[in-house]
Each structure stands twice: as C-alpha cells, then as structure tokens.
Amino acid sequence: MERAIFVNGLAAQFILVALFGLAVWAMIGRARGGRRLPRIRKIPGLEAVEEAVGRATEMGRPVHMTYGLGDIDDAPTFAFWGMLGHVAQLCARYETRLIQTNNNYLVMAINEEVIRQAYAETGRPDRYEADDVRFLSPWQFGYASAVLGLFQRERPAANIMIGTFMAESLIFAEAGHAVGAVQIAGTANTSQLPFFMAACDFCLLGEEIYAASAYLSRDPVLTGSVVGQDFAKMVIFALIIVGTVVENLWPHNWFWDLLSR
C-alpha cells in the first residue's frame, strides 16, 4: 500500500510554508550575491533612532533600551537584538551611555555580548560599562517599578522599547514622559499598541519591528530576508483577492478547502 508523503491535508500548507521559506532564502541569496534589491520604504520611527541618540549626546544624558518581558525564543526579542546592536554602535560612536535593563536572565546574557561586540566593532571596547546592563527583577511589576526609579535617577534623554510588552508598557511610557525622554516604541502585542501610540513620540506598529534591524543596518542579508517576507505578503494579498472573488462566485469551493484540512 502506498503511503502519502505528507500528513493528510497538510501538503498544501507545507508547500506554501516552504515557498515562503524559499522566497526569504532566494532574496537573501540575491543580497549575498550583491545584486540589487528593492528598497525598504521610509519608517519614521526608525529614522528617529539616530536623532534620538544624537539628542541624548547633546544633553549629556543616557539612552535607555528594553525588550519588555520577552523570552529568548520570542521573535520580537530577535528584533530587539538587531536594534540593540545598532543603537549600541551609535552610542559608542557618539560616546553616549547606553543603559539596558532586563527582567530575563537568559536574554540579558545575550544582550551583554551584543553590546560588547558593538562597542568592539566601533573601536571603543573600553567604553563598555558592565554595570549599565542591569538585571532589575524577574517579575513584571517589580521590573516596571525598578525602571520607574531608574528613570528618575538617570534621566535618560532617549527611551527605546522594542519587544514583547504587556501591562507594563504604559508605566514605561509614563516614566519616559516624566523625564522628557524622546520615546521610540514598538511591539507586536496589539493590546499594548494604543498606549505606545498615545504616549510615545514614535511607534512601530506590529511587524515594523521585524524590519528594524535590516532597515537600520542596511545589511544586505537582513534586507534580503525582509524583501522575501514582503514578497510572501504580496502573494498572500493576491491570495485573499483571488479567494474572495472565487468565494463570491462559487461559495466554499476547492480553493477554500485548500487552506485547511
């Protein structure tokens, strides 16, 4: 008896996912080969990063960065690391202090290395200050109140928040506002976006955070993966349009069945 290769009903799904992966991979390959890629459109929140660090430098006050409550295997935490490397390089170049606070021990271990490496790449390994990567509390509210206190003492001039945020988002945004920091925030947690939207100067909506590291670093490989992702998004967009047209003409057809088992 012949056995199917795929689990019943998952073939279409696997193929679509694999095609998505191929698109990302192909665009990365294109980038590695030095070929031209479409440009990423302007994202105001990201344009403001350099300006915010510059402002902190002028005022002689530090920059603060956090990823909220992210864990090491959360996608937004990877977005944060991409951004952290970039901001750390800027801070090293401008000789501005970067304070990075943590509530997750594992993420913190990685942050230390990302920052250390960024300082080394800028030729200023001596500027790395171990005490500025701080573990505040493993618990959400303990962390938030510690950040409140820290803001009062250190008075950062820029506050960059990218990652997984829950209820503490508003507290951070309020703390930043109280000391007059320029605030750039971004999260994929839609329930927290309204607070960032209202209380911060710039807000990255949802998946804009995933484009951040590519956008800021202009690294071709990362840009390639964002382009690949965009390509997949257009395919999905087309799929929705076609699917809707077909659905209106022939309700609940094979096309409908294709997308689930």
Binding site: I28, F78, I110, E207, V221, S225, Q229, K233
Partner: peptide, 19 residues
C-alpha cells in the same frame, strides 16, 4: 505579525539570526 514570526523562524533556521 504571523508572517514576521515565520520569517524570524526561517532566519533562525538559516543561521542568520544567531544572537
């Protein structure tokens, strides 16, 4: 965001995200 998550997973798989 779902696509962003998938893309991140691919990048981890391809060894591009290696923080």
């Amino acid at each position: 965001a779902g696509l962003g998550g998938l893309a991140t997973a691919f990048r981890i798989f391809l060894g591009i995200e290696r923080a």
